[in-house]
C-alpha cells in the first residue's frame, strides 16, 4: 500500500461565480483503523486563501506549519497578504526543495486573487502545479471525485448552489472509498464572507 494512502483523505476545490469552495472529508485513519472523525485537512492561510493537504497526515502537519511560518514572514516584510498565485509558487518550491525525499502530500490551493477572481490549483508531492478553471481533486478518493465532479459541475454557480454541488460530489465519492469519509468539512468563500459547514455523512 502506498504511503499516500496510509491515513486516507478526500479533497476538492471548485470555482463558482466570483467565489470558490473547498471541501474535505474528516477521517484520520491508520490504514484500515479509524483513529478520529474530526481531523482537519483544510487550513485557512488568510481570509481569501485556503490550503487543503491530502496524503500522509504527519507531513501535512509539518508542511502546514512551514507554510504558515513563511506566510507570516511575508506578511511582516510586505505588509499585505499573499496572492494565491504567489502562495502556489511558494508551496511548489517548498515541495521541490525535498525532491529526493518528498513530503508525501498532495496539496490543493484555493483562493481569491485580484478583483476577486477565483484561483484553484493542485500539485503532486514534488511541487508540479496543475491549474484548472473548474475543479481540482486530491486524496485516496480522487478517482471517484473526478467522476462526481465531472458530472455535477457547472460553470458560474452562485455560492449556495456551489455549496450544494461540492457537498454532493464529496459525499457520493467518499462512499466508494474505504479510507475516507466519516463526514465532511466545506468552506464557501466569497469576497465578503467565509461560510464554513460541517457535513454529516455515512459513519461506516
Amino acid at each position: 500500500m502506498s504511503i499516500f494512502e496510509y491515513n486516507g483523505s478526500a479533497l476538492i476545490a471548485m470555482v463558482g461565480k466570483n467565489c470558490f469552495a473547498i471541501a474535505s472529508d474528516r477521517r484520520l485513519g491508520v490504514q484500515l483503523q479509524t483513529i478520529a472523525t474530526d481531523f482537519q485537512k483544510i487550513y485557512k492561510v488568510h481570509d481569501k486563501l485556503f490550503l487543503g493537504l491530502s496524503g500522509l497526515a504527519t507531513d501535512a502537519q509539518t508542511l502546514y506549519q512551514r507554510l504558515v511560518f513563511r506566510h507570516k514572514l511575508y506578511q511582516l516584510r510586505e505588509e499585505r497578504d499573499m496572492k494565491p498565485e504567489t502562495f502556489a509558487n511558494l508551496v511548489s518550491s517548498i515541495l521541490y526543495e525535498k525532491r529526493f525525499g518528498p513530503y508525501f502530500c498532495q496539496p490543493v490551493i484555493a483562493g481569491l486573487g485580484d478583483e476577486d477572481k477565483p484561483f484553484i490549483c493542485t500539485m503532486d508531492s514534488i511541487g508540479a502545479k496543475e491549474l484548472a478553471k473548474d475543479f481540482v481533486v486530491a486524496g485516496t478518493a480522487s478517482e471517484s471525485l473526478y467522476g462526481a465532479c465531472e458530472s455535477m459541475f457547472k460553470p458560474d454557480m452562485e455560492p449556495e448552489e456551489l455549496f450544494e454541488t461540492i457537498s454532493q460530489a464529496l459525499l457520493s465519492s467518499v462512499d466508494r472509498d474505504c479510507l475516507s469519509g466519516w463526514g465532511g468539512h466545506v468552506y464557501v468563500v466569497t469576497s465578503t464572507e467565509i461560510r464554513e459547514r460541517i457535513l454529516k455523512g455515512r459513519m461506516d
Binding site: L28, V30, Q33, I35, A36, L56, T58, Q61, T62
Partner: peptide
C-alpha cells in the same frame, strides 16, 4: 493527545495503540 511514531498529532477523547487497540 494521540501521537504516533510518524508524528501524527491529534487531540482525542479516547485513543489506543497496539494489538489491544482492536
Amino acid at each position: 493527545y494521540f501521537i504516533d511514531y510518524i508524528a501524527t498529532l491529534h487531540k482525542v477523547d479516547k485513543g489506543a495503540f497496539g494489538y489491544g487497540s482492536y
